[in-house]
Amino acid sequence: MYATTYHKPMSLSEAIELFEGSEDASYLSGGHTLIPTLKSRLAAPQHLIDVRNIPELASSIEVTANKVIIGSATRHHIVASSKEIQAVVPALSGLAGSIGDVQVRHMGTIGGSTANNDPAADYPSAVLSLDATVHTDRREIPAEEYFQGLYTTALEPGEILVRIEFNIPEIAGYAKFRNPASRYSMAAAFVSKHRDGHIRVAITGAGNEGVFRWTEAEERLTESLTAEALEGLTIDPSRMMGDMHAPTDYRAHLVAVMTRRAVQNLGGTHIL
């Protein structure tokens, strides 16, 4: 780790002022992506601005008639164990409970994960599939516009992710195949049927541009929300990431299998 200065702002304006006043700053939330990166000397921000004490971001879960609203600094285990979320979108709490291990879930946050947009992270699939809205210190960004490729989002430099508002679906399911080493998703599908009837299929862990909607699967499932409706549907391997754990053709295959399994497990999760 290189030398860096730690800041603990208590308000949004203070955080933004700090960011704008320094040459090379980075926001810090649960630190479970950023700190390992610093420790392996792959990043060297001169200032770390801890956002977890800002009241607007604070750990919070609010469930209204149509929405689940989660504060950016809410840790994965809080989402996983939330009775309110379990009651309305069990696939979402189940997804949070499938992230990393106990330590990771007690430190990592939804905001950090969504801001980071790791192509193998879990949350981006829920954000996209549940037509969520990302609220920042300055605007609201619909999920469709928010994710812009590997580790890339619509957030501008210095923009702070404050909270995420998910639509409560009629039903949703999450299926994930984990990387045997890292246990991040190697291919995962979040399938939602919204209250107005439209279907969203979001795939994470697999695409070479990060999380994406699999529209062909959405069309099939709009006809019939069954695994059988997906029979024979494949995805082009050239859209997939390939690595030592899963070449592109295997990932493409897993995407199809996980999408079927998400449908077979609507109202819950299926983790392999």
């Binding site: 392996s40 045997p180 080493a181 890292s182 991040y184 030592m244 754990h245």
Partner: peptide, 11 residues
């Protein structure tokens, strides 16, 4: 080496 951390070395 491709498996330089526990992200890639399965245990």
């Amino acid at each position: 080496p491709l498996a330089g951390s526990l992200m890639d070395y399965g245990m």
